[in-house]
Design a protein around this nucleic acid. Structure first.
Length: 726
RNA sequence: GGGCGGUUAGCUCAGUUGGUAGAGCGCCUGGUUUACACCCAGUAGGUCGGGGGUUCGAGCCCCUCACCGCCCACCA
């Protein structure tokens, strides 16, 4: 027995060496795995944002995925786990811009496009190094030879091809649409990047011809020339749809048109509203329905345009009271309600108020019909006409993508039902530049300039566009690579529920369109790790916990176990350091169990045929039951149960009971009885170590290295050892 | 407004198809037995949020109420 077993287990000293052994072995790469392996098992790591460091939530997520991958690898599958990072365009650029502003007092326009992109790229690179180091510390068995970054050359080629094919299919279009404009960042943002903040403000009632209309935002009302009432509203039955009315408004007389539409809610205010199609989603939709004029009132810097007359050029934030004063002076102010509570849309990144604007943007039409040339999705035959929305629904409804958690499945379906066209252009500089070129009225899709006088679209693509291609762009698409044939669709995806809509659904969209395949066969959605008071870990709260610190104190194995055991998949958990400590103790327990078994089996030859006593046979039978149970749990992704059962069996059955009773049996005069027990102890220890490996890879590999083994048995790493047969 | 979760021991949470309530931490008592004090043996602690129903049997299924949380939409 090695002398290190005479001392308590030291995780720090062991883990780094073990990880190096694994990397050197090449077994993270399925191409190097021993034996005849046929069945692939693929997982792609949700690419981490290169905005900083990994937090405890990432540690949890990777613990689950590594357990799944290691389990598959031990069961003889061609296990592939692909690492990657995501440029997180807006978040990363905003972070760097903030730094530049702070340190040099410059804006991005002072720095310039080229220089800014250079700096953001450098920042991303540093951040990437940190992140990859953290994943190694966690013990994640990622195939580094297939590492991918959303902005690298291969992924860039995938993005371009995806754009071109969708453009050619008529699914990507440029249109005047209403978008969420962040005037501070000077970019559009997606619906998902909006945070609603509750605000108390004044609510004004104005006389609008024969109507009284209510508004919280008088500064948008200059051009309002349509008044909308519900068709069934008895108060307005004397008015007819399309009827015009002459009236006096902010800057003089105006001809208003009555619109009867169900979008107007009779219960709100007076039941009559005027619309501002250029600066409101719902107003825009009404205007589209009746083909009404849409006039811009506010410019992209948040200032009023000439239509505001004397108020032109003033920032909207400063003009409200002045307009109200004027209206009052004209006798058009009916009343003011002081306590109006409403939600204001703000930008998640910059905190700026969102001003909807109609702009030329690039979109993906989710309801646009097209003919799908190749489809493996049940219910969608190759060559049939379909839409992206239909594909997204069919993939999940048919079970081609299994979502065993019914609640999340419902959420997904509900979301797809309400999906609008996806705005994919962003007015920032860091990211995949839109591969479209303009020359007067001509438009061309190309990576490089089609020639003189062609100007490229200045915008970049939404970061989710490239992330959505992830399951197949990482495998070499658009090339028809062997990897793509072998490993797609991937097997398992385990994201946090936060990004079910943002990412999971968009991966399904892209994969079904471009490959006619689902991106993954099973989605198991996990919950969030929160702090002690139930808050999310976030930089702004400053409550982050560095996984590296925990690994230093307790070991990666202990951290992994503490995150997985007892955390039902899909539920949130509260991080508890005492739990990590508890599993550090468990690691030590395993160490001492091994020490006991090793000291009592020294010099013997491993041969489980020598297990002869009835008691021992029963113990082996019992072990078989545990193995069966644990295997079933892992197959069904019940990681929290599998790990807990092993923990319980190792400590409270094997150590507390079996080892204790062995002490007297090992003193037996009867050589056969003694030998039978020795062999039994070895078999049980071997099984425990093997089955715990997906959860506690380091210590199990280390113990494995010191296990006595049969003469004919070639010593190999535990990482590729066969999973117990059940 | 729409949707989805949660409510189980002092705390944090498990409980896979309905079959006599579990873990970790904490508390208390006793142990320097040669694997381990990062330990061992033992003790206390729950009418499983309330009410109703189905069933031979419900923490689990159905209905209903209460409270907590999350997501989405929107507030002219």
């Amino acid at each position: 027995m090695h002398e290190k077993f005479t001392k308590p287990y030291e995780a720090g000293a062991t883990e780094e060496a073990i990880y190096t052994t694994w990397e050197t072995s090449g077994f993270f790469n399925p191409d190097n795995l021993p034996g005849d392996r046929v069945e692939p098992y693929t997982v792609v790591l949700p690419p981490a944002n290169v905005t900083g460091v990994l937090h405890i939530g990432h540690a949890y997520e990777s613990s689950i995925q590594d357990a799944a991958i290691r389990f598959a690898r031990m069961r003889g599958k061609r296990a592939l786990w692909i690492p990657g990072t995501d440029s997180a365009a807006i978040a990363t650029q905003a972070r760097v811009e903030k730094n530049i502003q702070k340190e040099e007092g410059k804006s991005r326009h002072d720095v310039g496009r080229e220089e800014l992109v250079k700096r953001v790229t450098q920042f991303a690179k540093n951040s990437e190094d940190t992140i990859l180091g953290q994943l190694r510390k966690m013990g994640d068995s990622l195939d580094w030879s297939r590492y991918a970054y959303t902005l690298d050359e291969k992924r860039n080629s995938a993005v371009f091809t995806a754009f071109q094919r969708m453009f050619d299919a008529g699914l990507i279009y440029r249109g005047n649409r209403i978008v969420n404009w962040d005037a501070k960042a000077q970019t559009t943002i997606s619906d998902d990047e909006i945070v609603y903040v509750e605000e108390s403000s004044k609510f004004y009632y104005f006389q609008y011809g024969p109507f009284v209309i209510g508004t919280a935002r008088p500064e948008t009302k200059f051009g309002d020339k349509y008044v909308v009432v519900h068709p069934d509203d008895a108060r307005y039955k004397e008015f007819t749809h399309g009827q015009t009315i002459e009236l006096e408004w902010i800057n003089g007389p105006l001809t208003a048109t009555v619109i009867k539409d169900e979008a107007s809610d009779p219960a709100i205010g007076t039941g009559a509203m005027t619309i501002t199609p250029f600066h409101s989603h719902i107003d825009f939709e009404i205007a589209e329905r009746y083909n009404l004029d849409k006039e811009q009132i506010i410019d992209t810097y948040g200032k009023l345009l000439p239509i505001a007359g004397e108020f032109a050029g003033i920032p909207i934030a400063k003009v409200r009271e002045k307009i109200v004063e004027k209206m009052n002076a004209k006798g058009l102010l009916v009343k003011v309600d002081d306590k109006y509570i409403h939600n204001v849309a703000t930008s998640e990144r910059t905190g700026a108020m969102i001003e909807p604007q109609i702009m030329k943007q690039w979109f993906i039409g989710v309801d646009t019909p097209f003919t799908i040339s190749h489809s493996e999705i049940p219910g969608i035959p190759s060559g049939s006409e379909t839409t992206l929305k239909k594909l997204m629904k069919a993939a999940v409804a048919s079970g081609a993508v299994a979502m065993p958690q019914e609640g999340f499945k419902k959420t997904y379906m509900h979301w797809v039902d309400n999906l609008r066209d996806w705005c994919i252009s962003r007015q920032i500089w860091f990211g995949h530049r839109i591969p479209v070129w303009y020359k007067n009225d001509e438009v061309k899709v190309a990576v490089t300039s089609p020639g003189e006088q062609w100007e490229q679209d200045p915008d970049v693509l939404d970061t989710w566009f490239s992330s959505a291609l992830w399951t197949f762009s990482t495998l070499g698409w658009p090339e028809q690579t062997k990897d793509l044939r072998d490993f797609h669709p991937t097997s398992f995806m385990s994201p946090a529920y936060e990004i079910l809509q943002l990412w999971v659904s968009r991966m399904i969209l892209m994969s079904t369109f471009h490959l006619g395949q689902v991106p993954f066969r099973t989605v198991i959605i996990h919950g969030l790790v929160r702090d002690k008071s139930g808050h999310k870990f976030s930089k702004s709260l400053g409550n982050g916990i560095d996984p590296l610190e925990l690994i230093k104190t307790y070991g990666a194995d202990a951290l992994r176990m503490s995150l997985v055991v007892g955390t039902a998949i899909g539920n949130d958990s509260k991080f508890d350091e005492s739990k990590v400590k508890a599993y550090k103790h468990f690691a030590n327990k395993l160490w001492n169990i091994s020490r006991f078994v090793f000291t009592n089996t020294e010099g013997i030859e491993v041969d489980d045929k020598k297990i002869s006593s009835d008691d021992d046979k029963k113990l082996i039978e019992e072990l078989g039951e545990i193995a069966k149970d644990v295997t079933a749990d892992l197959e069904e992704h019940r990681f929290h149960l599998a790990s807990e059962k092993l923990y319980h069996y190792a400590w409270h059955r094997f150590a507390d009971s079996i080892i204790e009773e062995s002490k007297s049996i090992l003193m037996s005069e009867d050589a056969e009885v003694k030998q039978s027990r020795q062999q039994t102890l070895l078999v049980i220890l071997r099984s425990i170590i093997t089955m715990l490996h997906p959860f506690m890879p380091f210590i199990t590999e280390e113990i494995w290295h010191h296990m006595p083994r049969g003469k004919d048995k070639v010593a190999q790493l535990l990482i590729v050892e066969e999973w117990p047969k059940v």
